[in-house]
Write a protein that binds this DNA or RNA. Structure first.
Length: 279
DNA sequence: CGGCTTTGACCTGCGC
DNA sequence: GCGCAGGTCAAAGCCG
């Protein structure tokens, strides 16, 4: 489906239009402040957190490409999304550690009052013409539901790899139909099939497990996309990190002059990228 | 024929 | 308890 794109992105990863914003949710372990937005933080909202570089922002990336675009919009949909994620964080914090390989049974047998096991979630918005963004993995659609207050349905995908329970939801913003909201849940237990086809880049991959949306992605491509909106002529995708510092401890020397209009060096936009601490 | 999408039904959680 | 919304299942159909 994206064979033509692999000429540019040999990982099989194709990008969609413009990277708008990236925000993540911490892995469900109760360590609320580690990777995601900390409800107890001094920031009144995730918006504020995201737009406040001083926050450190581990796990939260704001990388506007379009100067006019503001991730700090008061979009009710975005607010809802954040609220849901924060709620899920709370649930995760209370959750127990059970096997995750039979979520179906879990869902069907879990009684009210019990906390459903939640995988780490990671959501980001992408400006894209297509709903399902090519990310190097193979996905099987297993459901679609109409979303309240939105004319656009939400699609549910599951990774086709065996023993890989990564799921993702894809929905289009009703506020801005050009924006696709993708939520990944879980971690891949394997490498990106697309990346495996490219031995030249396979060494860049982190060992699994890794963020569902990121395994097999050369983050330099993201950075390149950030600074090169012109690349939108290629089908392009935005990428998010549950903890960017894990995967991009320092800027690759191959991209020494990354500049983001109005934001200076990329490090200034994505401070967590340059954090030396890793976890 | 295998893999994938579609879609209605079903289940669960939550608010009232 | 009821209704709503989100999430998932699974049968049927499509497609290469």
């Amino acid at each position: 489906m994206s064979g033509e794109n692999r000429e540019f992105y040999p990982h099989g990863f194709s990008f969609h239009d413009e990277l708008l914003s990236v925000f993540s949710q911490k892995p469900g372990s109760g360590e609320a402040a580690d990777l995601g937005f900390d409800p107890a933080s001094p920031f009144a909202s995730l918006d504020e957190y995201m737009t406040t570089p001083a926050a450190g922002g581990d796990g939260l990336i704001m990388a506007p490409v379009t100067p006019n675009f503001s991730v700090s919009s008061s979009s009710t949909e975005e607010s809802d999304l954040r609220m849901k994620q924060e709620e899920e964080e709370d649930k995760e914090a209370k959750g127990n550690e059970e096997g995750r390989d039979s979520f179906k049974k879990e869902n069907k047998t879990r009684k009210k009052g019990e906390n459903r096991q939640r995988e780490p979630r990671f959501a980001f918005m992408t400006k894209s013409e297509v709903d399902h963004l090519e990310d190097g993995y193979r996905w099987r659609k297993y459901g679609q539901k109409a979303v309240k207050n939105s004319p656009y349905p939400r699609s549910y995908y599951r990774c086709t790899a065996q023993k890989c329970n990564v799921k993702k939801r894809v929905e289009r913003s009703h506020q801005d139909p050009s924006i696709v909201i993708t939520t990944y849940e879980g971690q891949h237990t394997h490498h990106s099939p697309a990346s495996m086809r490219s031995s030249s880049s396979a060494h860049l991959l982190s060992p699994s497990p890794m963020p569902a949306n990121f395994a097999g992605h050369d983050h330099r491509l993201l950075l390149h996309q950030v600074v090169s909106p012109a690349a939108a002529t290629i089908n392009s995708t935005s990428i998010g990190y549950s903890n960017p510092s894990m995967y991009l401890p320092s800027l690759p020397p191959s991209l020494p002059q990354l500049q983001v209009p109005d934001f200076g060096l990329l490090q200034d936009v994505l401070p967590s990228f340059t954090h030396s601490s890793q976890q």
